[in-house]
Amino acid sequence: MRLQKLLVLIIGLITTFALVAAACGNDDDDGAAAPSTSEQQSSGSDAQPAPAGTVSGSVTISGSSTVEPISVRVAELFEDVQPDVAVTVDGPGTGDGFKLFCAGETDISDASRQIKDSEAEDCAESGVEWVELRVGIDGIAVMTGESNPVECVTFNDIYGLVGPESTGFGSWSDAGSLGLATSDLPDADLDIYGPGEESGTFDSFIEIVLEDIADERGQDATTRPDYNANADDNVIIQGIQSSDTSFGWVGFAFAANASGVKLLDVDGGDGCVGANANTIASGEYPVSRSLYIYVNKAKAEASPAVSAYVDFYMSDEGLGTAVADVGYVNLTDEAKGATRANWAGR
């Protein structure tokens, strides 16, 4: 009896190995989640005339980790109405996303900036035609304690406070010691709170505020390492509240509801602008940027799943609900209209 049980177990072991081996043999073409790298074949099956409104197939998205949450949220809502479509979303970064996109490996590329000329050339070379759709705005609130006298900071000030060369600075006034033109900052303790390196907000903050100045000065585009990094936005807000002369940044949607902190005006070269939904949506507030998706035209044409997904993205549930759900600022109605027109006129 016992021997038989042991044998059963051993046979089970061998069978499992066999199954594993067999399954990896045809890895790429089973499992709904496998990326549809073979575009023609997969679109061949997708092209079946879909019965009234329901489509099936797969959509492959890659690119910016900042835009990723929007595309994920749209995918979730979309799969509720189109359960036969499998959407995969990756977030390796805007540049890596465009490499895959221009090689024809993805259907849609998430981007936290517009496509560069060199990337556009790559796409042109491999015959990938695309349509650019602006989907939302990422705004970052720069904050300090409520009773700090400082009202407005310039990009140079921010670079002096948290840039790569400010490691070890313990006072606001140290920011002036880098030889940059800075505002007149007080000699007060500087406690810095912000998101950690893996966060999309961390990347956005560097790319919007620090990167250009760092490039000019021949420095790595990053922040100083010695600040209080946390993945929990609540903890960042609490940290900023805890000191009068703290400094920190989080996504605008989160900061907008926080109490006990002061949102600083930021001068991006055109005077001090305060952060609110209007100045962010209009692009006046300098620590903000537009978020885009790039859709491969040929794939949208061939695959009803891709076009249905983008159609859904363009609806109020996409540009409205999903964008706000994950903490970004909605486009103005005008801008939404422009985006929809772009998609319709592809």
């Binding site: 199954l19 399954a23 499992g31 709904a32 989640a33 990723e68 994920v72 995918a75 979730e76 499998a86 959407v87 995969t88 979303v89 977030g91």
Partner: peptide, 12 residues
């Protein structure tokens, strides 16, 4: 983050 696939218990 997101796991797009929701397999059944016996999707070998």
């Amino acid at each position: 983050g997101r796991l797009g696939r929701d397999s059944g218990f016996f999707d070998f």
